[in-house]
């Protein structure tokens, strides 16, 4: 994207980033343009753009995630913020401290930015309504994971030059995936054609009304696809609950070279990580020439810098 892109300087009008839902297409593009700049910064020797100097960013993770947490940590630090990681173990929450109590505790620490991951849908929204700072949703249950969708879009755009009219096939556990939901909303907003490919047990009720084309046959679903987005299958869903076994799942929904050959020749493969090699994806594909998986990680830091910077515009200055 050129640096004269009109979206870059338009201010981001939201105090929080709780989901892709509710964002206008130009706001999404604005964040992607900002992220392009962040990519440049991140590739320099001196990786600092100190727009958050003196600001406190707290990463509050109710669910473990090394990569997302470190990505947000790095993003905050590259923008000059003081970053604190707070891991909240499930057990202490279960002991009776409500999310609201946690919010009150946090408020007393006067953070400027709060990055939250929680295992329950809607939890980040609830927290955002009770704290005085800006909140970024780093994943709330199966609801949304907006920065993942943004980094996916950035990765796609850098390789294909656009999002509109591309055919994107999202494959795997759609029902339990916040990545799928955020991507479906974002990709539709930017004019892509979205497909989902999954066994029926892993498709949410009403999926056909979610702006996607539904496929149960992976080869059919991959025909003509420009982007193949694989999802992680959680271990607890593998043996009998939603699918009978890993080997049966891999047979029908694991992405190998043969199935990938049904997609367009220049199709690119993505995965939000962490991957289960041999469950949803063949190592040869994951590490092959069509894979963007490693680049997604780099784009993740850039997109999170863009988001933090955009929200920082709303922080009080006195």
């Amino acid at each position: 994207m050129s640096s004269t892109d009109p979206h870059r300087d338009s201010p981001f009008p939201h105090r929080h980033l709780l989901g892709i839902e509710g964002l206008q297409p130009h706001e999404i593009l604005g964040l992607l343009d900002r992220a392009e700049e962040a990519v440049e910064i991140s590739r320099k020797v001196e990786k600092i753009k100190p727009v958050l100097r003196g600001r406190t960013q707290i990463n509050l993770f109710f669910e473990n995630s090394t990569r997302t947490q470190s990505s947000f940590e790095l993003a905050g630090k590259r923008l000059g913020a003081d970053v604190m990681n707070m891991a909240v173990s499930q057990s202490s929450v279960k002991k009776g401290e409500t999310l609201i109590d946690t919010a009150a505790t946090l408020n007393a620490m006067h953070p400027d930015l709060l990055v939250v991951r929680h295992h329950a849908a809607g939890a980040v929204q609830l927290l955002a309504s009770k704290v005085g700072c800006s909140v970024v949703n780093a994943g709330d249950g199966p609801h949304e994971h907006p920065t993942q969708a943004l980094l996916d879009a950035l990765t796609i755009r850098r390789h294909k030059g656009k999002i509109a009219r591309l055919t994107v096939a999202i494959c795997g556990d759609i029902t339990h995936s916040r990545v799928a939901r955020s991507n479906i909303i974002l990709l539709n907003a930017l004019g892509a054609r979205v497909r989902v490919i999954a066994p029926s047990t892993l498709l949410p009720s009403g999926i056909e009304k979610m702006g996607v084309e539904v496929f149960r046959d992976m080869r059919e679903g991959l025909k003509g696809a420009d982007i193949v987005m694989m999802l992680r299958l959680q271990r607890e869903r593998m043996n009998g609950a939603f699918i009978p076994s890993v080997r049966e799942y891999y047979r029908y929904y694991g992405l190998d070279q043969e199935k990938l050959s049904y997609a367009n020749e220049d199709a690119l493969v993505m995965h939000p990580g962490p991957m289960n090699r041999g469950v949803e994806i063949d190592p040869a594909v994951a590490d092959g020439p069509q894979s963007l998986i490693r680049e997604q990680v780099e784009m993740g830091v850039a997109v999170r810098m863009a988001v933090l910077e955009a929200l920082a515009a709303h922080l009080p200055t006195s």
């Binding site: 809607g122 609801h143 949304e144 916040r178 939901r181 009720s205 009403g206 999926i207 009304k209 979610m210």
Partner: peptide, 15 residues
């Protein structure tokens, strides 16, 4: 309630 609304919210539904 199970259905589109629950699916978008990422909640499991009661059919």
């Amino acid at each position: 309630n199970a259905g589109l609304n629950a699916s978008w919210k990422g909640l499991s539904g009661v059919p």
